[in-house]
Design a protein around this nucleic acid. Structure first.
Lengths: 213, 213
DNA sequence: CCGCATCCGTTTCGATACTG
DNA sequence: CAGTATCGAAACGGATGCGG
């Protein structure tokens, strides 16, 4: 059964926490930052959360108009969750939390690390040279078991864009897992250890631009 | 007994929530944003939190170096809690949450509203005319029962500064309670309903500058 | 399989009472 | 004033069940 408790405090901070302050709520939002995701995708990004908890949070967040449940067009016949405009406005909150959390120690291994987490870090930390031509990358991330998610990462204009799903065309591709990508961003010289296709130099520039920051 | 559970997730957002994601934790930080406070001051700002919860959170936040427990110099012989540098760096998180929470409905009455909450709102929303001369205000807020807190509010340079405690000298003073001050900021014309001393015009300018925003 | 619902032991919360 | 002790209620976390 969904949680409805409130701080009973008119302060806007407390009102915000009434909606997204329950355990796992902001991490669910994190998983949706890059676009719609199915229930099982969300669960894969939050391996520590039990299924009923995720279902509860999704219901609560939907009731508060932070997320929206939508049926995919045929032939998918599946449901996806996506952020509403209100939910997308939580991005500054997650950015601020992520910035603050960067100074804290990591939990002991083994720890989770979702695709969304790493790509959020990549997008925030990479500073691609604006003079470089735009490039599109296919990033394949093995997320538990033999399941793999495919993401589209684009550079250009000194920015990095991230979207879930297969790119229509890619200059380069890399296949790894979230931990591997994270390690790569911390230590660009390990690029050769990874399964890379296409324009390796473009990928190298992207990865190195994280260090520059 | 303090909580030590972790999301077990290396994402910096999850690491931040490991430390300040427990219930009431960020509201305790809110109460300390303007300076050191005693246990009972914090409790008065969080009337919905039981004493053992507040004690637990304070211990946890101290262990994570978000706050620090310090003995006041004699003859006070009392203890205060204050933010560490790490704790002060949470201000952007609270700002982002407060901004987002502003669009949400208030809880049903009766709701709490601490002095820190209202003054946080005042400081964030007021846009005093930079051309006006600086002014200092004594703000006395009755916070439950017959207890009153005294705060110092200064304008100047187009900014508002807030500190707990008696001002050395004040151009004007107002005595009300947090709800009254909040209502006043929403409806400046009600200033005449309040107990004001000194330069009423300066206080009126401050209050009206919240509307301009 | 995916998307939950149900059950159940454990942890946390919240209210009240109590102590140095 | 500044907490601790206790206890029932709620929330969490893991396992399992089950319809589409």
């Amino acid at each position: 059964m969904p949680t409805t408790r409130s701080y009973g405090d008119a302060c806007t901070i407390a009102r915000a926490l009434d909606v997204v302050g329950e355990r796992w709520a902001l991490l669910v939002v994190r998983e949706l930052l890059f676009g719609p995701r199915r229930f099982s995708d969300i669960r894969r990004g939050l391996p520590g959360a039990s299924s009923n908890l995720v279902a509860d949070r999704l219901r609560e967040l939907e009731a508060r108009e932070v997320i929206h449940r939508r049926r995919l067009p045929p032939p998918a016949a599946s449901w996806v969750y996506e952020l509403t405009p209100r939910g997308r406005r939580l991005e500054p909150v997650l950015d601020a939390l992520g910035e603050w959390g960067g100074e804290l120690p990591r939990p002991p291994e083994p720890f989770a690390l979702s695709a969304a987490s790493v790509l959020l870090y990549l997008r925030g930390a990479a500073r691609p040279d604006p003079a470089e031509p735009p490039a599109t990358f296919r990033v394949e991330l093995r997320t538990g078991g033999d399941v793999a998610e495919v993401w589209t990462v684009r550079t250009g204009d000194g920015r990095v864009q991230v979207e879930p799903g297969e790119p229509p065309r890619a200059d380069a591709g890399i296949s790894t897992d979230p931990h591997g990508l994270n390690d790569l961003l911390a230590e660009p010289s390990t690029l050769d250890d990874h399964d890379v296709t296409g324009d390796r130099a473009a990928l190298r520039r992207l990865v190195r631009s994280v260090q520059a920051a």
